[in-house]
Computed example of a mutant assay.
Amino acid sequence: MTGYAAFLRGIMPSNPNMRNEKLRAVFEGLGYEQVTTLLSSGNVTFQARETASATLESRIQKALNTELGIPGGTLIRTRDQLHDLVASDPFPGLTHCRETYLTVTFIKGAHLDLAAVPKDESPSPTIRVVAYDEAAGAILSIIDNTDPNTPAFMSWVEKQYGKDNVTTRTFLTVQKALKKLDS
């Protein structure tokens, strides 16, 4: 069995069909084991027989849409991908706080145009892209949360890669997902 984390787009806990217990039920109905949810924003960890991430993404998204009416955006990462990302210490010496968010933007697909990733030259002055983790398919960035213009970066990312092909989590959430997979 392999450990996976699913990062779902557009989950709103106020929607009864998007609550954690319903999300877990969909994953369990697909035959996945040790299904847990993290926070109330579409983070699910589970165990499955080793399968390609793209196959898992498609299967899970179809079930979420059919059973709960959740339209799109399932991104899967393996426990090993998350472990290597966290172990690389991509934000050395920085602390996630109310004013400064350390973020991980996962992008669907293994082959990205690395030239399009704006390292040190962000499309928004409130965002600084610090790295691209190829193995995890993730743009790593620091958000100045004191400025209300931070959505400009997400708009840029969605335009570059497609709305259903990206999702952003804080580095703390990624660390918590890894901890769930390791427990």
Rank of each mutant, 00 (worst) to 15 (best):
residue 2 T to Y: 15
residue 3 G to E: 13
residue 6 A to S: 14
residue 7 F to E: 15
residue 8 L to C: 10
residue 10 G to Q: 05
residue 11 I to L: 09
residue 11 I to A: 10
residue 11 I to D: 06
residue 12 M to S: 15
residue 12 M to C: 14
residue 14 S to F: 14
residue 15 N to Q: 13
residue 16 P to Q: 05
residue 17 N to W: 08
residue 18 M to S: 05
residue 18 M to D: 05
residue 21 E to K: 12
residue 23 L to Y: 09
residue 23 L to V: 08
residue 24 R to T: 13
residue 25 A to P: 06
residue 26 V to P: 11
residue 27 F to D: 09
residue 31 G to L: 00
residue 32 Y to R: 02
residue 37 T to G: 07
residue 38 L to D: 04
residue 39 L to F: 08
residue 40 S to C: 15
residue 42 G to E: 03
residue 42 G to T: 04
residue 43 N to S: 04
residue 44 V to Y: 06
residue 44 V to I: 08
residue 46 F to L: 08
residue 48 A to G: 02
residue 49 R to Q: 11
residue 49 R to P: 07
residue 49 R to K: 12
residue 50 E to S: 09
residue 50 E to W: 06
residue 51 T to S: 04
residue 53 S to N: 13
residue 56 L to M: 02
residue 56 L to W: 03
residue 56 L to R: 02
residue 58 S to H: 09
residue 59 R to C: 03
residue 59 R to G: 03
residue 62 K to V: 03
residue 62 K to I: 03
residue 62 K to H: 04
residue 65 N to H: 07
residue 65 N to V: 04
residue 65 N to Y: 06
residue 67 E to A: 00
residue 68 L to C: 00
residue 72 G to D: 06
residue 72 G to M: 07
residue 73 G to S: 00
residue 73 G to V: 00
residue 74 T to K: 06
residue 74 T to C: 08
residue 75 L to I: 03
residue 76 I to C: 01
residue 78 T to R: 01
residue 79 R to P: 01
residue 80 D to R: 06
residue 80 D to K: 07
residue 89 D to F: 03
residue 90 P to D: 01
residue 91 F to D: 00
residue 92 P to G: 00
residue 92 P to E: 01
residue 93 G to V: 02
residue 93 G to I: 02
residue 94 L to K: 06
residue 94 L to A: 06
residue 98 R to V: 04
residue 98 R to A: 06
residue 99 E to D: 02
residue 100 T to S: 00
residue 101 Y to E: 12
residue 104 V to D: 09
residue 104 V to S: 11
residue 105 T to A: 15
residue 106 F to W: 05
residue 107 I to W: 01
residue 107 I to N: 04
residue 107 I to C: 01
residue 108 K to M: 13
residue 109 G to K: 00
residue 110 A to F: 11
residue 115 A to L: 13
residue 116 A to K: 14
residue 116 A to C: 13
residue 117 V to K: 08
residue 119 K to F: 12
residue 120 D to I: 09
residue 121 E to Q: 15
residue 122 S to R: 11
residue 124 S to Q: 13
residue 124 S to E: 14
residue 125 P to Y: 04
residue 126 T to L: 10
residue 127 I to H: 14
residue 127 I to R: 12
residue 129 V to H: 08
residue 130 V to S: 04
residue 130 V to M: 06
residue 131 A to H: 07
residue 131 A to V: 05
residue 132 Y to L: 13
residue 132 Y to G: 11
residue 133 D to W: 11
residue 135 A to N: 13
residue 135 A to P: 12
residue 135 A to I: 14
residue 137 G to D: 10
residue 139 I to H: 10
residue 139 I to D: 08
residue 140 L to W: 09
residue 141 S to E: 14
residue 141 S to F: 11
residue 145 N to D: 05
residue 145 N to I: 04
residue 146 T to A: 00
residue 146 T to Y: 00
residue 147 D to P: 01
residue 150 T to D: 15
residue 150 T to H: 15
residue 151 P to M: 02
residue 151 P to C: 03
residue 153 F to E: 11
residue 155 S to M: 13
residue 156 W to T: 11
residue 159 K to I: 13
residue 162 G to K: 02
residue 165 N to M: 05
residue 166 V to K: 01
residue 167 T to R: 04
residue 171 F to R: 07
residue 173 T to N: 00
residue 174 V to N: 06
residue 176 K to S: 07
residue 177 A to M: 12
residue 178 L to I: 07
residue 180 K to R: 09
residue 180 K to E: 12
residue 180 K to Y: 10
residue 181 L to I: 07
residue 181 L to K: 05
residue 181 L to D: 06
